[in-house]
Design a protein around this nucleic acid. Sequence first.
DNA 1: CGGTACTTTGACCAAATTCAATCACTGTGG
DNA 2: CCACAGTGATTGAATTTGGTCAAAGTACCG
Lengths: 237, 237
Amino acid sequence: MEASFAITPDIAAELAAELAAKLDMRLDPAAAAGEGAAVPLPEPDLHYLAARTALFSPGEDAGKVYEVTQGVLMITRLLPDGRRQILDIAGAGRVIGLTWSDAHDCAAIALRDSIVRRHDSNGSSAVALNAARFADALFGEVHRLRNLATALGRKTATERLAGFLLDLAGEDADPPVRIDLPVTRNEIADHLGLALETVSRTFSRLRRDGIMRIETSQKLTILDRAALRRLADGGPF
Amino acid sequence: MEASFAITPDIAAELAAELAAKLDMRLDPAAAAGEGAAVPLPEPDLHYLAARTALFSPGEDAGKVYEVTQGVLMITRLLPDGRRQILDIAGAGRVIGLTWSDAHDCAAIALRDSIVRRHDSNGSSAVALNAARFADALFGEVHRLRNLATALGRKTATERLAGFLLDLAGEDADPPVRIDLPVTRNEIADHLGLALETVSRTFSRLRRDGIMRIETSQKLTILDRAALRRLADGGPF
DNA sequence: CGGTACTTTGACCAAATTCAATCACTGTGG
DNA sequence: CCACAGTGATTGAATTTGGTCAAAGTACCG
């Protein structure tokens, strides 16, 4: 998609300056205080995360952006009394850690052993990454959160789970589609705003109805995608 | 916030090009097909919206960005069977209409007579606006949607309503704080993922408990903000 | 006034949660 | 190799929160 811009070079420069300032502030407040001169360009460094360890936690300085290279992370909010909302499940290719304020308002926790590529503010790679993916990552975030909020606010347990499974399956080949769940029943529950028992029961019904096969609790197969789609869209159970 | 950038001019230019392309695509697909030359700079035009009329609807071309100048709009998702999730309520100063794909995935509907400033893609004002507010608007959107999803997924009816009212009240002066609701009970319900009767009942209890005064159904006063805060945070009813 | 749209309240109902066992799978140590 | 924790999943029963249905009540507007 090579568009010719209806934006003058002057305006583009101005835009660049403002956005660069913004990105810079976002990415490394410290650097913003430094000189305006060019700096060395450290390569982005890879971080290895063991399953169930945190990449960042709420309150921590939101200075870095991460690109998931391998594995899966979840983005969670924790209420003071322990209730948890899993806001996102981010697999390879996803960019996470973008936050408005100076401090994270969420935790990012590896669901499996994972590798993330950390992009510091003062490397060219950060700029390249951000120019290429900054907007996409944010727009994607908004889009997914809108879907999630709609599901949480207005869909039944069955619709939520069916939709979740279809999302995981992607638009892949026809059934049978194999899914390797990166999450426990408890985590699905905390993502879909349900009790884990409800999730379990719903899985059981999907199995009884011949819509899914459940090899182990994490290894699933969609046998009847059309039926699952119907359930996700509010069809009768 | 005049930051000196740790980004070379070269990189900034590259960043500018990529982001300009992105913004341009986003803002006016038509213009993207035109020449790269400078274009006249039309001032942003104001649009007057009567209450209950739509600014844009799902599926429509997402070519423009709007800044709310006066009034209030709601951003809604509609499910095929009529269920509705109100994702956002945007008052003066807010920027809306930013969307990922080419088409809107939401509707924007005026709750009151409103005025929005439309920013076309090919005006300098659009660039200025976007450079200045683009990121903020998106980050704000993400932040609010995370809060909403957490509320919808993990909070009780009372917590949701109390939180909603506190949001509307802002961090203003001490009680009594007056609130002029821009929404009906039905709309509050569709925002908080509840039945309208549940909203009404919850209001009634807040009134009985001396936490709020309800002059008319839209004119409210918070009498005991601390108590409301406690309820919003999951305290006992 | 009379009508329409919105709100409140009550009685009942149902989806989902909670409580409580039981089961299945895994890894560990005897 | 098997017993036995330990963790997570499933299932059942009782409960609850919030939803649905129905009937007034109230405000607003021509």
